[in-house]
Nucleic acid binder design. Structure first.
Lengths: 211, 211
DNA sequence: GTCTATAAGCAGATAGAC
DNA sequence: GTCTATCTGCTTATAGAC
């Protein structure tokens, strides 16, 4: 925590894009761990291996950096989740959806958590982008579920709450991982995520009555 | 937001306990909305209708107030959730558990959210109390599920992940309510919570194969 | 218990030399 | 682009009169 992760000699060889990516990566970690107000740009800069004033050359305000962090988080998430619901048998689509979302929680825990923090606080700084970029995707997913129900391909459940449930269960393996670790008395392993996937899939598939 | 919720004349009539409760109630709201660092004791005091210095007479440090807030949140939650798993048919116990947890999310959204914020941030200020007061309760619940499985009263699922799933789904109706409201294009109503309860219960009961 | 006054530090942001 | 230096405002917390 005290030493910069990248020394300035090595950094000097990087181009602007790569340096910005390093700053954003460090910012994601810190915003997730300490929240927006709990994170100072001075500490982000320190951990990323440059001065605060230099960081502010690339990101003129703290809010601009935060917006960029959330933009990148959404880009990554949308790229992984896009078109999952487009085709295939309901059971396969649901399994793939659960698997992809859980994989994101496992591989990008800081991204999941910084997004969760923003939503829990009422999405005061990022509500518009959530409305424009996330909500349409979720609504489309709900419509896919409703289409299956109308076609008799799955049992008639509440499609909206089914999606909320899938979202909640998978998201919690990033957000509530600290509490889960306390219950298990150890950090979550790959095996835990696999078991979680099986359990969640079982619940969802049993509820919609397909194998 | 600009005017104190309780004028000082009325407050003067209250005893110390009641005034502390007012301060804590306001602090819960603000910590949930703005996080620990995002909330200043000056604004808590302002909204509670007393001066910052006067607030610090009752709570000598910001951390002390925060600890008290989380203590009260846990007290309230444990009181509502205690002994739910003690007796009864698995299906009834599970339904009651889901109902109680969801009711807590609906009636005490700020409590749920301030707790979630603390956990997501790694429980840096409150990890010990979570370990001492929450984890034993969760472990006991898991043991109850495992007892049912051993006795053949429910299907053999992963009891730990089943509990994590129930926790996640019910908790999210407080934490992710802002995002749900964006998807629904309106605030959550009582009816939404009832439908959520039905959907969650259906998933859990179908997974453990009891009606 | 409540008030006025203030200390001491850190935050985000800016100016200008090189 | 990176540096030194600095400004301004807000934060928690304290001191002491009443």
């Amino acid at each position: 925590m005290d030493k910069p992760r990248i020394n300035s000699a090595a950094r000097r060889l990087q181009n602007r894009e790569s340096l910005e990516a390093d700053i954003v990566a460090e910012a994601v970690r810190m915003f997730a761990d300490c929240g927006y107000e709990g994170t100072s740009i001075a500490r982000i800069a320190e951990n990323a291996g440059l001065s605060k004033q230099n960081l502010m050359y690339y990101f003129p305000t703290k809010q601009a950096l935060y917006q960029r962090v959330l933009d990148d988080v959404l880009d990554e998430w949308l790229e992984r989740m896009a078109h999952l619901a487009d085709a295939g048998q309901p059971a396969d689509v649901l399994r793939a959806y659960i698997q992809a979302k859980l994989k994101f929680s496992r591989e990008q825990p800081y991204a999941s958590r910084v997004y969760a923090m923003e939503v829990i606080g009422g999405a005061k700084l990022y509500g518009e982008q959530i409305r424009d970029r996330v909500v349409p995707v979720l609504r489309r997913d709900i419509e896919v579920f409703e289409g299956w129900i109308a076609a008799g391909r799955i049992a008639p459940v509440n499609a909206t709450h089914l999606l909320f449930a899938i979202w909640a269960m998978t998201q919690s393996y990033a957000d509530f991982a600290p509490q889960m670790a306390l219950v298990l008395d150890r950090r979550l392993t790959r095996k835990d995520y696999d078991e979680a996937e099986q359990t969640i899939a079982r619940m969802v598939l049993a509820a919609v009555a397909v194998a």
